[in-house]
Simulated scan of single mutants.
Amino acid sequence: MANIKHKLRLSPATMSLFYFSLFMLLVVVSGDTIRMKTILETSDEQLKEEPKPTIWPEQFHSVLVMNNTKTNELQVVDLWYDWPNRRNLNLIQYQLGKKLYDVEYDNHTSYYFTRDATRECRTVHFDVGILTPDWLHGATYLGQAKVDGFLCNVWTKADFVWYYEDVVTKRPVNWIFYTGRSFHVMSFEVGAVLQDSEWQAPVHCFDKKQNSILGLSHQLLKPSAPMGSLIDRSVFPFV
């Protein structure tokens, strides 16, 4: 640097300005390098930390309020999920109407019946079993949204269902189907088990004159949704 000063005959003021400029250039370059490193590290952390939907407990009871945003239909559903015994029950209370039992087994058979004087019953055979606890595996993460007063992580699967899970407790808050049916989770009791007698279809379900047996495939149920029967049949009928 002394040679440069001698050859160019720079004044002390000019040399001071040169050194100051060189110093500032180094500061800017260092700052940009740090910021770029921070951005890259943050991006890597975000990719690593993208939340996954919580796997369902193997047994639980949940009270749901169903609101059909297209028809304004309301239902209250008691959902009993029992994976160890490969069964699922929806006790559906229609608004000012009947109470329908929907008992589903992993052998692809479902019973829809009432226990009152109407003695309704029908048996339906599907080509899929009940949902597995990890049925949301592979769902697409959409980000966060506030639903029913809760900050939720949101996923969608097959453009058929949108699933909202509380960020803090990891409990489900809401399901919304493309049909407009929205299920609001009012309670979620992990480990709750329904007594066996409630699962048993009544005698009139086995009266051949009254009971109708239907064989339904997912193509017939939801031709436009590849996961239609999987979700419809397994947890929420009549979506």
Rank of each mutant, 00 (worst) to 15 (best):
P202L: 02
S197K: 09
S212C: 07
A192H: 11
K37D: 01
N153R: 00
H108Y: 13
T114D: 03
L100Y: 05
V239Q: 00
L47R: 14
I34V: 11
D102Q: 12
L220T: 10
V63T: 14
Q144T: 15
G97W: 02
S110A: 14
C152V: 04
M66N: 07
S62E: 10
Y112D: 09
S229I: 12
V29G: 11
E189A: 12
L17M: 11
D148R: 06
A117K: 12
L230D: 07
A2V: 15
N211H: 07
P84C: 06
T179W: 02
S16M: 14
W56P: 04
K209N: 08
K37S: 09
A117E: 14
G138F: 04
F238L: 13
L79N: 00
M186F: 11
M15C: 09
S30L: 15
A192C: 08
L96K: 14
F236E: 05
S234V: 04
Q59W: 02
T123M: 11
D207R: 07
V63C: 10
T71R: 03
V147R: 09
I34F: 07
F20W: 12
S224M: 11
S212Q: 13
N174P: 05
L40P: 07
W80H: 02
I130F: 00
V27F: 06
N211K: 10
K170H: 15
R233G: 11
K5D: 12
K222D: 14
K209E: 01
F206G: 02
S62T: 11
K208T: 15
V203W: 05
Y163P: 02
Y178H: 07
R181N: 15
A117Y: 08
M15I: 15
N85F: 06
C205D: 05
S212T: 10
A145F: 04
F238P: 03
F177M: 08
Q210R: 15
Y105C: 00
N88W: 09
A158N: 08
D148M: 06
A13P: 03
F113N: 05
L8Q: 11
F160A: 03
D207G: 08
A13I: 09
E45F: 11
D196T: 10
V103H: 01
Y163Q: 06
L22M: 10
S229D: 14
S110N: 07
M66A: 08
K99G: 14
D207F: 09
Q59K: 01
Y164T: 05
P223L: 05
Y112M: 15
